[in-house]
């Protein structure tokens, strides 16, 4: 009896090893670039989100996964891998197989702002990835509680006190945009970091903080309800959904900060695969459902090529680095 089972054990162990080398059907395989390009898509294409489920990056990823998977003809599971504002997911993607089967939604702030706040080995460089396509941009808007009666930057200047500004966290566009604006406009202020847009906005609604820079999608319901007043947006141009609010640049302060998102693949993914993916995403961008999604979430399409995304983000990082050095702003709080 005992021997039979020992033998069985040996057999199954060998079988295991054989299967291991063949790597059949599992999610652990590896293959060469040419093979990958020929067979693409070979099974499900995983789309990783570096944030928790429910956030705007997650929603965008899930809105795209459906139509893209229809176009590619394979399933596209969306996997949340939250951690370090997406850096964890990015580091994992870097070491993933460059066969187009693993992609992620990457945030501009991770590549263009966070590097200014964290140590070098934790910074994510957009050049370490192949960018498949840009997706959309999301504007930051500076809001204040409507009860304060402030509606312009001059009102803030004349408030006559040190203003507290709520940010959505360290190394975010929210922090950078408000730090820059307060410095450039010479408004005395102190930063109060929160964990994300909702609590920062709540602090303004509850009058615990004077102003907050948050993403437009989050602030819009409160703006429409008249609970908070938008003061400026931080994009280059006025936002299409809020076109009566001036940009910071129009108000005379060179502060241009945006959140943008793109699809990233591991470095070295063959061009054929990238092209095929780009075509699939372009098809998804064309669908009515996705366009409605953009409108519902106040997102501005930025469906540019990967090279353009890299160009946009690298320029932004350089500019932010210059500005923070020039105005002696330390996003990392004294690190």
């Amino acid at each position: 009896m005992t021997t039979t089972f020992r033998r069985l054990g040996a057999v199954s162990a060998t079988a295991g090893l054989v299967l291991l080398t063949a790597a059949c059907g599992g999610n652990l395989g590896s293959k060469s670039a040419e093979e990958a390009a020929e067979n693409f898509p070979d099974g499900p294409v995983t789309l990783t989100i570096g944030q928790d489920p429910g956030g705007s990056t997650d929603l965008i990823g899930r809105a795209l996964a459906g139509p893209v998977s229809d176009d590619l003809g394979v399933s596209m599971p969306v996997v949340n891998r939250p951690g370090a504002n997406g850096a964890l997911a990015a580091k994992e993607l870097e070491s993933a197989e460059a066969d187009g089967q693993s992609l992620m939604v990457i945030n501009m702030s991770l590549a263009a702002i966070t590097p200014l706040a964290v140590s070098e080995d934790q910074a994510v460089d957009v050049n370490d990835f192949e960018i498949v396509t840009g997706i959309s941009t999301d504007d930051y808007v500076l809001v204040t509680n409507a009860d304060n009666g402030w509606s312009t930057i001059d009102d803030l200047k004349n408030a006559g006190k040190t203003l507290s500004y709520a940010t959505t966290g360290v190394g975010t566009g929210s922090q950078l945009s408000s730090e820059l604006l307060f410095k450039l406009a010479e408004i005395p202020g102190k930063a109060v970091p929160f964990d994300g847009g909702a609590p920062a906005l709540t602090a303004v609604l509850g009058n615990q903080a004077d102003v907050a820079s948050v993403q437009l999608g989050e602030a819009m319901p409160q703006i429409e309800a008249g609970k908070v007043t938008p003061i400026v947006t931080f994009a280059k141009e006025r936002n299409q959904y809020l076109d009566d609010v001036p940009t910071a640049v129009e108000s005379g302060y060179e502060v241009e900060v945006q959140q943008a998102r793109a699809i990233a693949a591991p470095k070295g993914t063959p061009q054929e695969i990238l092209d095929e993916l780009k075509a699939a995403f372009d098809a998804a961008f064309e669908t009515q459902a996705y366009q409605d999604f953009n409108t519902d979430n106040l997102l501005t399409p930025n469906e540019v090529s990967g090279d353009e995304v890299v160009e946009q983000w690298t320029t932004a990082l350089d500019r932010y680095r210059e500005l923070t050095e020039e105005y002696d702003i330390d996003l990392g709080g004294g690190q």
Binding site: G16, L19, L20, N27, P77
Partner: peptide, 9 residues
């Protein structure tokens, strides 16, 4: 559930 737990098969 289609969780991405590493699996061989």
């Amino acid at each position: 559930l289609q969780t991405p737990i590493p699996h061989l098969f």
